[in-house]
């Protein structure tokens, strides 16, 4: 026998049909009773716009670029995410923070341009894992459909979260991430969820 990955395959037999099988009718009735039994089963459909399927807590959907509690962008344009990205979906251009922009950007360097091509992205989450600044997260939002290919290249306008409608990413905060956050040297994680984590140390 040839190599088998599972033991579910069956050897095909080409034997002649028996007289009973040639009648067709027993098989027909058997088939019809099977379909009839399905008439009384609950439908498996989720009626989408009214009813939404529950997403897994670790669902990886559209990305978000987080701001800190003061509204400054966390991303420092280090490029770790772009390096980590297996689909090469992320591109960015960095710029230096000027005086008076402290409320906009958290550190001296920031991403002037940050683009993710949603058609290339495979939603693996490696960008989020690579990010040292807790800036990029995958969320449970689904990427919209568009008519043009260009519209799938999401810029900062679509990626950076708005302070008026903040996006909860606590579900994506794995124990390792939380452990990382507790490192006393990391000033940028001082405030999270309204709690002063620094006090614990």
């Amino acid at each position: 026998m040839a190599l088998q990955l599972t033991n579910r395959s069956k050897v095909v037999s080409n034997k002649e049909q028996s007289a009973m099988e040639k009648l067709y009718l027993p098989a027909v009735f058997k088939g019809m009773s099977i379909t009839l039994s399905h008439l009384f089963k609950k439908s498996a459909t989720i009626r989408y716009p009214e009813q939404k399927r529950i997403m897994a807590p670790v669902y990886r959907g559209q990305h978000v670029l987080k701001r800190d509690d003061n509204g400054a962008e966390r991303c420092t344009s280090c490029g770790m995410c772009a390096v980590a990205c297996p689909a090469e979906a992320i591109t960015m251009e960095s710029a230096e923070r000027k005086k008076g922009e402290e409320h906009l950007y958290r550190e001296e360097k920031y991403a002037a341009k940050y683009e993710i091509n949603m058609l290339r992205c495979v939603f693996c989450g490696l960008c989020e894992e690579a990010c040292p600044k807790e800036a990029i997260f995958l969320t449970d939002r689904i990427v919209d459909t568009e008519f043009e290919r260009e519209d799938f290249i999401y810029g900062k306008d679509k990626l950076v979260e708005k302070m008026t409608e903040r996006i909860d990413v606590t579900k994506r905060q794995t124990p390792e991430v939380l452990e990382f956050k507790k490192t006393p040297g990391l000033k940028h994680n001082e405030l999270f969820d309204g709690k002063k984590l620094k006090e614990k140390h």
Partner: peptide, 8 residues
């Protein structure tokens, strides 16, 4: 058909 196939 959809009832027989567990659909709506």
């Amino acid at each position: 058909a959809s009832f027989l196939q567990d659909r709506v």
